[in-house]
């Protein structure tokens, strides 16, 4: 097998302390007719082997765009990466050839998409789509690939895998389809899986099953997981650490339990307050006022200032840096101390 040739010239295998994936000062912009939309403005995050990072944010916060930049599946043009590094196992993927990146996709980094119905090819059987991974990356025969596909479907607990391998995506339920997406991502046992809102299109009971499955599969291996979501509820049990994104920046990052206990950014606080809770039944739901910023015209200073209950003059002029708040914690708020102290 020539699996190692893609990493030719790589430095010695990353030491235990070096992260599996590290995004450094990543910028992504889209050139549109109306101007330049700055979707990602200097994102930093890292994932270690065996670790789960949850990236949280509203739609348009840049969380999916960051993931697509990592995968190398951004539409370029109109997309552009003017600045930044994406280090995977110590190597900057943005400097690699297209062919080298293709060999990483699926094999070392895999992605699970949100809507499995539209993300699976409607005219090819699931067995074909799963088997394609083995046939293309490992040169397996059609027959061997099919056998592996059945194993995979068993592994993600699709009942009657052998009988269903030739079925088409539309013949499966939403939860089963998402399991197929997961199976496809797991196929080549990648080092990192990026799950982009894997449960958003599913109903709540199925959501829990799919999340449990993901967590369990990850526990069995040393695979890193980036879980992109806007749902704080699904994160708590699964993630090790959280990065909260707003208008293309990380506004807060922290180990998962600390953020629930004591958010250090007004935006995170707002998000936590807007989770419906049984003990507040009958009361009006909390909502962060205002709308997410237009990426063509991101507000000056802190992008959150027009919606922030704590905004002062300094917030309208100065972009807050990511202050170190504690061990492994950061908050991009001028008033993080006040927020924490509340």
């Amino acid at each position: 097998m020539t699996a190692t040739d893609t990493m030719a010239g790589a430095p010695a295998p990353a030491t235990a302390t070096a992260p599996l994936l590290e995004v450094r000062d990543l910028h992504v912009e889209f050139h549109t007719r109306d101007g330049v939309a700055r979707a990602v403005n200097g994102v930093n995050y890292s994932v270690n082997a065996g670790e789960t990072l949850a990236v949280l944010g509203e739609s348009g916060s840049g969380k999916s765009v960051t993931a697509q930049a990592i995968m190398g599946i951004l539409d370029m043009p109109p997309g552009r990466i003017p600045q930044g590094e994406i280090l995977f196992q110590g190597q900057d993927m943005l400097k690699m050839s297209a062919e080298a990146r293709r060999k990483i996709r699926g094999r070392k980094i895999a992605m699970i998409f949100q809507d499995a119905l539209s993300s699976l090819n409607p005219v090819l059987s699931v067995g074909y789509q799963l088997g394609e991974m083995f046939r293309v990356h490992q040169g397996l025969s059609r027959k061997a690939a099919k056998a592996r596909s059945i194993e995979l479907m068993d592994r993600v607990r699709i009942p009657g895998a052998r009988a269903r391998v030739n079925d088409y995506p539309h013949q499966f339920s939403g939860g089963m389809r998402q399991r197929i997406m997961i199976a496809m991502a797991l196929a080549l046992e990648p080092d990192l899986i990026i799950a982009d809102e894997p449960t958003t299109a599913l109903d709540v009971t199925v959501q829990a099953q799919v999340m449990d499955l993901l967590a369990e599969l990850q526990r069995e291996s040393t695979m890193g997981l980036i879980l992109i979501t806007h749902d704080l509820g699904v994160v708590a049990d699964v993630a090790d650490k959280i990065a909260v994104m707003y208008a293309g920046r990380i506004v807060e990052n922290a180990p998962v339990h600390e953020i629930y206990r004591q958010p250090a950014h007004p935006y995170t606080k707002g998000l936590l307050q807007s989770i419906p809770r049984v003990d507040r039944k009958g009361q009006e739901l909390y909502a962060i006022k205002g709308l997410p910023p237009n990426l063509l015209h991101v507000p000056a200073g802190c992008a959150f200032n027009p919606r922030c209950p704590m905004a002062q003059d300094v917030c309208r002029t100065d972009v807050p840096p990511l202050h170190t708040v504690g061990a492994g914690r950061g908050s991009a708020c001028h008033f993080w101390k006040e927020t924490l102290g509340d």
Partner: peptide, 21 residues
């Protein structure tokens, strides 16, 4: 289409993405 993006994300060669998917 999303499934074309998936095909790219699977690391399939370009000709396969275009012809098969």
């Amino acid at each position: 289409a999303d499934y074309v993006r998936t095909a790219v994300a699977k690391g399939l060669p370009r000709h396969r993405v275009i012809i098969r998917h």
